[in-house]
Simulated assay, not measured.
Amino acid sequence: MNPHPEPVETPGLEERLQVSAVDASTEALRVAIVDGEFPAGSRLVEMEITARLGVSRNTVREVFRILQAERLVEREAHRGVVVRTLTPESIKDVFVVRRLAETGAIREAASAPLGTREECCRRMRAALADAGAALKASDAHRLAAADLAFHGAVAALAGSGRLVEVISAIKEELRLAFGSVPDRVAFHAPYVARNAEICELVENGEDEAAANVLHQYLIDSEAQIIALLTE
């Protein structure tokens, strides 16, 4: 045994504060984009965002890098960083991934590790309760978050960390799509009941029926978002 073990390096206070500032600033700008404060195609001027968030320019550059990786913003020649404009093709691409990943997760649920179904159903029920409260409060932001939480739990049914990562990778694009809908509360409302139906089927072990209901649900949601985007 080494009597003089190597000291474990831990992040200094300044580094931890920097990480915290990046996380908080990223979420603040992410929410502003999703809520439509910065419409599609808007330029995000570094100095203006620095002043708005009260952070350094280096922090804002890191925020831009993260949001670009999440496909919420993009860099354009001679314009800099702009809010991404969703197209029908990009919406279709996201929903192809959702249909394959989420319905596949349900169909694999029977093969998942012991306790996975129960834990995922618990998470789905919690998301449904949150969605119900958000509906009563007409809170569009909370409704969207509850919907994403519900479908994150659906993706976890297979017990595959990689599959969960696939859905997580498109989560912010979905938030951007939801944010582009004119009346988000009215958009989400009918899907809360459909989520409840899917949850009940999964709880009862009716996985094929649940996957089929979800497949049609996602087709309908995709078509509705595209129709609203192209009005």
Rank of each mutant, 00 (worst) to 15 (best):
M1C: 14
M1G: 15
N2V: 14
P3T: 15
H4V: 05
P5R: 06
P5G: 01
E6H: 07
E6Q: 09
P11V: 03
G12E: 02
L13W: 09
L13M: 02
E14W: 10
E14Y: 12
E15H: 07
L17S: 13
Q18F: 11
V22M: 06
D23G: 08
S25Q: 05
R30P: 03
R30E: 11
V31C: 01
V31E: 08
A32R: 08
I33P: 00
V34P: 00
D35K: 04
G36F: 15
G36A: 01
F38H: 12
P39K: 02
P39T: 04
P39R: 03
G41E: 02
E46H: 06
I49P: 02
A51T: 10
A51V: 06
A51P: 05
R52S: 15
R52W: 13
L53H: 13
G54D: 07
G54R: 08
G54A: 13
S56W: 14
S56N: 06
R57W: 09
N58R: 04
T59G: 10
V60E: 01
V60T: 02
E62C: 05
E62Q: 10
E62T: 13
E62Y: 00
V63P: 01
V63F: 00
F64L: 09
F64T: 07
F64C: 12
I66S: 06
L67R: 07
L67H: 03
A69S: 12
